[in-house]
């Protein structure tokens, strides 16, 4: 096959016509997508929950012990990176587990709220 034959074949391609309903079909999908409104994040209930949780923690534990615990947590985490030890590792893992559990709880609660707002 000569190069010019290949050029001719590739250049001369039959044109196809879209179906008469094509434009309408596309616009139906476009309108549907445009009318979709994202669910707003429930900031007010979320803030209320955080506030309640904070009050609960402060009520259960005196403020200075919470601060001390936070200090210990930060100190052990930093310390573990400098000089890892088993106790520090246990504390870090415990803190990570607690954070994860709290995050999952909040995610679950947010999804419940979002579901209720649909």
């Amino acid at each position: 096959m000569k190069p010019e034959d290949l050029e001719r074949i590739l250049f001369t391609e039959k044109q196809i016509e879209p179906s008469p309903t094509f434009c309408g079909d596309v616009m139906v999908h476009v309108q549907a997508e445009a009318s979709y409104k994202p669910i707003p994040f429930p900031w007010i209930p979320f803030a209320a929950i955080i506030l309640v949780l904070a009050i609960l923690v402060l009520w259960l534990y005196p403020a200075d012990s919470v601060l001390r615990a936070a200090n210990v947590l930060v100190y052990t985490t930093v310390n573990w990176f400098i000089a890892p030890s088993d106790i520090a590792l246990r504390n870090v893992l415990l803190a990570a587990f607690e954070s994860l559990a709290l995050t999952l709880l909040l995610v679950w609660f947010s999804l419940r709220l979002a579901g209720a707002n649909r």
Binding site: I16, E17, P18, F22, C23, D25, V26
Partner: peptide, 28 residues
């Protein structure tokens, strides 16, 4: 925009899939 470009986009899709119905789905 769809009316102006439906022909080129369907035809470009057709060159990839060589199937008329599928080219419309791809263009959509």
């Amino acid at each position: 925009i769809v009316r102006r470009w439906q022909n080129p986009l369907v035809n470009l899709a057709f060159r990839f899939c060589r199937d008329r119905q599928r080219s419309e789905e791809m263009a959509q």
